[in-house]
Design a protein around this nucleic acid. Structure first.
Length: 292
RNA sequence: GGGCAGGUGGCGGAGCAGCUAACGCAUCAGACUGUAAAUCUGACGUCCGUAAGGACUUCGGGGGUGCAAGUCCCUCCCUGCCCA
């Protein structure tokens, strides 16, 4: 029985996770480890609603340049390390963010095959027709083929990458959860309310100078940098090419953010461990009980 | 008043006589083990059915021609542009 504890705070974008996590940290002490695939990147402050100059310690924010690639495995290693360090300091770690897959990777301790991305190989495979990739995988690894999404080129390529690099089939998904007591708090918002928050937030971001932020960053790193697949950034490309108005960009960001929020909700819905809270008091009570 | 273009599903937009309401967007639902704010899937006129499937309805209104009509003809209404 472990007495070490981890608190996860998750929710769709704009639901108020950061505020909630910060408030909890202020009350109970502790440090925050971000579980956000975008706040990882330096310079993306406005568009990711980053918490700057917070008195509460935040980890895994601003650690990469926008042109650097990142992935779950790396995230998991870093996050686990940070959590351990926090525990060693005798403090309470909070894992807060909206990237479901990243959260899952640490909470469930998923074990991802140790095959590093080989971008040269991927590029080659990417030239092939999707049906070709599918039939190749079918031949090399019929077991993985049975469960894979045959229309998802990206997954097909990764599966082939593993098979070709290791000369063996893709291992079965495995988990090695770490021995902590974990409380997962999810922020419950009704759809209309969340929609309004998103609209408000996007307007605010634009008011704070999102356009300038995007302009400066993309001039420096180019539109192809991995970080600029992000919502709030990609939409500006057409604007700077004079194909879109500011109004269109704004509406597109709102739309994409909302669609993203729904995808997050779909992901979270499946996890029955999540304790959904309506407000701070609910969360506070859960934490109180949990840390006793 | 005259000329031209057009009126198709929530929106955009194909089809210009024959089978199956193309396709895109939005919407709803979902998948996810090294790009995850990414990538991908299904449903989406109505009704019946768990399903395979079946029945019905639609292309501004009305009329007509044809075995068969968003698709051709007549007429009316509406919209945009041009001329007066």
């Amino acid at each position: 029985m472990s007495t070490e504890k981890l608190i996860v705070v998750l929710g769709p974008t704009a639901s108020g996770k950061s505020e909630l996590a910060k408030k909890l940290v202020k009350e109970f002490g502790g440090e925050i480890v971000s579980a956000d695939s975008r706040q990882i990147y330096k310079g993306m402050d406005i568009g990711t609603a980053k918490q700057k100059n917070s008195p509460v310690p935040h980890h895994l924010i601003d650690i990469l340049k926008p042109n650097q690639k990142f992935n779950v495995t790396l995230y998991k290693k870093l996050a686990v390390k940070k959590i351990k360090e926090i525990l060693d300091r005798g403090k309470l770690p909070f894992l807060a963010g909206g990237t479901g897959f990243y959260i899952k990777s640490v909470v469930d301790g998923i074990i991802i095959p140790e095959v590093k991305p080989d971008w040269k190989l991927r590029k080659q495979l990417d030239k092939k027709a999707i049906s070709e990739l599918a039939s190749w995988l079918k031949k090399l690894d019929p077991v993985r083929f049975r469960t894979i999404d045959v229309n998802n080129r990206r997954r097909l390529i990764r599966a082939l990458e593993i098979v070709l690099k290791t000369n063996r089939p893709v291992p079965k998904p495995r988990k090695a959860p770490f021995s902590l007591d974990i409380l997962i708090i999810g922020i419950k918002t009704d759809k209309e309310e969340l929609k309004n928050k998103i609209v408000k937030r996007v307007k605010k971001m634009i008011g704070l100078g999102l356009k300038k932020e995007v302009e400066v960053l993309t001039e420096k790193y180019g539109w192809e940098a991995p970080a600029f697949q992000s919502i709030g950034y990609q939409e500006w490309k057409g604007y700077f090419e004079r194909k879109k108005s500011l109004e269109e960009v704004k509406n597109e960001i709102i739309k994409n953010t909302w669609q993203y929020a729904k995808r997050q909700l779909t992901w979270f819905k499946k996890d029955k461990r999540i304790r959904w809270v309506k407000n701070y008091e609910d969360a506070e009570n859960l934490v109180l009980k949990f840390i006793q």
